[in-house]
């Protein structure tokens, strides 16, 4: 169980993580999704006690990380692929870690077998491929057989085999009853791995929801319509109570309406249509919409603060 309360990290004038609250529960994979720079890694470093929060707190199983007498038994982390000295062999890297926490030497051999590095365990890790480095990082995370696991972008740069291996491992760790917290900037990856989803953008939680709910809520469709009378058509569609957004090159995206309804409105008003089709929004699109908002604010739109609040409220309402 990981619990964050009002967790905040500021670097000078920049707020990387802005008073976030969340809970990561055991027995499930919780995805931590956000674009690069959203505050995922900063949050994870604060969980591990590496970065000091500017305000608020985060605990692992009820205690701050540094207060655990045997940290590697409590939480295992894959923070970065290369949090390893390249001049040391994989075996020796795991050995010093094991010694620091009083973990028996045979456990080192076990985790090496578990991640499939037996053949290269006595080689210096500097020569490892990205995938092998990632496996070594995972061996280190599993070394103390911890109940809480934290993976920061575990599939980054891996080949399809490696991705599938990590995905299966993550699922099985959660199935064993462990708390698993996985960050990613790929919605598609999260959809395959996570049971629960926490979306972060610009240091704020944009959504904290069950994965199935998120999928069903966001797998909605909209009508893509293009007309030479775009603005007039938009007015009439809005008058019907539908939400209309501008799409690429003058087209409109009409939400909550069927294509035939949009066509009928245009026909009744005598407006020509050049294109009319139904678009099935993907999860990736849903995620892009969420985070595009947060990126927009980053560019300094006037009144950004209030708009952000609106968005949060909207998502809170949607999640409820």
């Amino acid at each position: 169980m990981i619990t964050a309360q009002g967790l905040t990290k500021r670097y000078g004038d920049t707020t990387a993580v802005d008073s976030i609250d969340f809970t990561v529960r055991p027995g499930a994979v919780t995805g931590f999704l956000g674009p690069n720079g959203a505050g995922k890694s900063t949050t994870m470093r604060m969980v591990m006690g590496l970065d000091r929060p500017s305000a608020g707190s985060v605990t692992v199983n009820g205690r701050a990380y540094r207060d655990h007498p045997a940290p590697l038994h409590e939480i295992g982390a894959l923070l970065e692929a290369k949090a390893i000295h390249g001049g040391r062999t994989a075996y020796n890297h795991l050995l010093w870690m094991a010694k620091s926490n009083g973990i028996p030497r045979r456990r080192v051999d076990e985790v090496i077998d578990l991640v499939g590095l037996s053949e290269v365990a006595r080689k210096r890790s500097g020569g490892f491929s990205l995938g092998m480095g990632q496996r070594l990082g995972i061996a280190a995370a599993l070394l103390g057989d911890p109940g809480v696991l934290l993976f920061d972008e575990p599939v980054n740069g891996l080949d399809p085999d490696g991705i599938r291996w990590i995905r299966t491992l993550i699922r099985s760790l959660a199935a064993e009853g462990r708390t698993v917290f996985v960050s990613s900037h790929l919605m598609s990856e999260m959809a395959l791995t996570a049971d629960h989803l926490i979306v972060i953008g610009r240091g704020q939680i944009l959504a904290d929801t069950d994965m199935n709910d998120f999928i069903s809520r966001n797998s909605t469709s909209y009508v893509h319509v293009r007309s030479p009378h775009g603005s007039e058509l938009a007015e009439r569609l809005v008058a019907h109570g539908w939400r209309v957004e501008p799409a690429d090159d003058g087209a409109l995206a009409v939400h909550d309406a069927a294509p035939e309804q949009v066509g009928d409105v245009a026909g009744a008003a005598g407006l020509y249509l050049h294109e009319l089709r139904n678009v099935q929004a993907s999860l990736e699109d849903a995620f892009m919409r969420l985070t595009a908002d947060s990126v927009e604010y980053q560019a300094g739109v006037p009144g950004a603060a209030t708009t952000t609040a609106d968005t949060s409220a909207e998502f809170a309402a949607a999640a409820a």
């Binding site: 470093r45 591990m48 006690g49 590496l50 990380y65 540094r66 655990h68 940290p71 590697l72 982390a77 923070l79 970065e80 290369k82 949090a83 390893i84 000295h85 390249g86 001049g87 890297h93 870690m97 620091s100 926490n101 280190a140």
Partner: peptide, 17 residues
């Protein structure tokens, strides 16, 4: 060398003291 390799994070994860 712990900073250049990033290993300081592993060190402090293993031993937060």
């Amino acid at each position: 060398s712990e900073y250049s390799s990033g290993m300081i994070r592993t060190t402090l994860a293993a031993v937060p003291r």
